[in-house]
C-alpha cells in the first residue's frame, strides 16, 4: 500500500492522498495523471493493466487501485 502512495505522491506531490476518499472527485488525479499512474503501476508490478480497466473509478481510491492491480495479475 505504501508503495502505491509513494507513486501517487511522485505524480502529484502537492496532495496528501491519505486525506482523500476519492482522488478523482477531489481533483487530485486527472486523466493524464491516471495514464501516468497506469504506466508506473505496470512497471512496478510487472503487469499490463487492461485498457478496458483504465477508467476513473478504478483509480479513485487506494483500495480501488489495489483491486485493479490484483485483477490484472499483480501481487501486492
Amino acid at each position: 500500500m505504501n508503495e502505491i502512495y509513494e507513486i501517487l505522491a511522485d505524480i502529484r506531490p502537492e496532495f496528501d492522498f491519505k486525506e482523500s476518499s476519492d482522488f478523482v472527485e477531489d481533483g487530485y488525479l486527472d486523466s493524464f495523471d491516471i495514464v501516468t499512474l497506469v504506466s508506473e503501476l505496470d512497471t512496478k508490478y510487472n503487469i499490463s493493466i487492461d485498457g478496458l480497466d483504465i477508467v476513473a473509478k478504478n483509480f479513485c481510491s487506494i483500495e480501488a487501485i489495489m483491486n485493479i492491480i490484483r485483477k490484472n495479475g499483480g501481487e501486492i
Binding site: S31, D50, G51, L52, I54, V55
Partner: peptide, 11 residues
C-alpha cells in the same frame, strides 16, 4: 474527450 476515446478504442 480523451478518456472516452481511449476507452472506445480499447473496447
Amino acid at each position: 474527450e480523451g478518456s472516452k476515446v481511449f476507452n472506445f478504442v480499447q473496447k
